[in-house]
Computed example of a mutant assay.
Amino acid sequence: MSLLVKICGLSTRETLDVALEAGADMVGFVFFPPSPRHLSLEAARKLGSRAEGRAVKVALTVDADDATLENIVETLRPDILQLHGKETTARLRDIKQKLALPLMKALPVETAADLAALPRYAGVADRILFDARAPKDATRPGGLGAPFDWHVLENLDLALPYMVSGGLNAGNVAEAVRVTRAGGVDVSSGVERTPGVKDPELIRAFIRAARATDPSSPLPAYGERSTAQRAGG
């Protein structure tokens, strides 16, 4: 199966179009006010309509309440929810029951001890995202441009699909995939000029580098991706 590539924190028509044309499998939209990538519902509606049927739409939230999640789902019509806060497994079950959408749970990683919670979440989530643990004084849990020690995942035995994030860029994505054997990669700050401002050329470079990690998955021509990739499979 080809590596899945997710470009997260998209906030403009131009950069969304670049990500789609360059062959991103997943496009992420952030709904978290402290983030420089936070979207209003109206902006999300417009961007979501452009991505419809072209990539898997991911809505990223952080400890959002039911009303917020319902508004996001109604507006964006995401294919999957990314829960990036301190949501418990009970909260995941509750969300899945109410919204009937696949869930991707982000787990902060710094040392092997951080994997202790993995079995619990793997029993509920549909996909796991391993991200670098944020510093204690950080105002948001992700998108900080810092990698974690990928060797923590080196011998991971997990049947559930998983992705890696945190400090990825075109220069290190190949090594991250080699060490972690992840089925997908997720980038945000690594394709930005400044926090929250995506760079089209960095997006293209990242997707090229990610595709090059898998000889069976050459860089597609703009707009050409496999059916499996479009489905997020």
Rank of each mutant, 00 (worst) to 15 (best):
Glu52Ile: 10
Ser226Tyr: 11
Ala64Arg: 09
Thr180Leu: 04
Lys86Ile: 08
Arg193Ile: 15
Leu20Ser: 03
Phe206Tyr: 12
Gly145Ser: 07
Leu83Ile: 10
Asp149Lys: 06
Ala24Leu: 03
Asp131Ile: 02
Leu129Trp: 01
Ala170Tyr: 00
Arg127Thr: 13
Arg45Glu: 14
Tyr121Ala: 05
Asp25Pro: 05
Asp114Met: 03
Ala55His: 03
Thr12Trp: 06
Gly142Asp: 03
Leu118Ala: 02
Glu224Thr: 15
Gly9Gln: 01
Ala112Trp: 00
Ala122Tyr: 02
Ala112Met: 04
Val73Asn: 12
Val191Trp: 04
Asn71Met: 14
Thr68Asn: 06
Ala182Val: 05
Pro33Gly: 07
Val185Tyr: 06
Arg45Leu: 10
Glu110Gln: 09
Gly167Leu: 10
Asp94Trp: 01
Leu10Gly: 03
Lys96Trp: 02
Ser40Glu: 14
Leu129Tyr: 04
Trp150Cys: 09
Gly166Phe: 07
Ala113Gln: 14
Met104Ser: 01
Pro108Val: 01
Gly232Gln: 00
Gly190Asn: 05
Arg211Val: 02
Asp186Cys: 03
Gly23Gln: 09
Ala159Val: 15
Ile203Asn: 00
Asp114Pro: 11
Arg225Pro: 15
Val62Ser: 08
Gly145Val: 03
Thr61Asp: 05
Glu87Lys: 01
Pro218His: 13
Gly166Pro: 07
Ala170Ser: 14
Met163Leu: 11
Thr89Arg: 14
Gly23Lys: 12
Gly123Arg: 10
Leu81Ser: 09
Gly53Leu: 00
Leu69Val: 06
Arg193Tyr: 15
Ser188Met: 08
Gly53Asp: 07
Lys198Ser: 04
Thr227His: 15
Ala209Met: 10
Arg181Lys: 13
Ala112His: 07
Asn155Arg: 11
Val177Leu: 14
Lys96Val: 09
Ile7Leu: 10
Gly184Tyr: 11
Glu175Gly: 12
Leu160Cys: 07
Met26Trp: 15
Glu201Cys: 04
Gly48Lys: 04
Val164Asn: 09
Tyr162Met: 00
Ala67His: 00
Arg50Asn: 00
Thr75Tyr: 08
Ser165Phe: 01
Gly9Phe: 02
Glu175Lys: 10
Leu101Tyr: 02
Asp157Thr: 12
Asp126Leu: 02
Glu14Trp: 03
Ser35Gln: 14
Ala106Asp: 09
Leu41Thr: 00
Ala117Arg: 14
Gly9Tyr: 02
Arg178Thr: 15
Ala43Arg: 06
Tyr162Ile: 15
Pro78Phe: 01
Asn71Leu: 15
Ala210Thr: 03
Val62Tyr: 10
Asp17Trp: 00
Ala116Pro: 05
Asp214Cys: 06
Phe148Pro: 05
Val164Trp: 08
Phe31Ile: 10
Asp94Ser: 11
Arg140Lys: 15
Arg93Leu: 10
Ala205Tyr: 11
Val179Glu: 06
Tyr121Gly: 09
Ala122Met: 02
Ala90Gln: 15
Thr194Glu: 15
Lys136Ser: 10
Leu76Thr: 03
Arg225His: 06
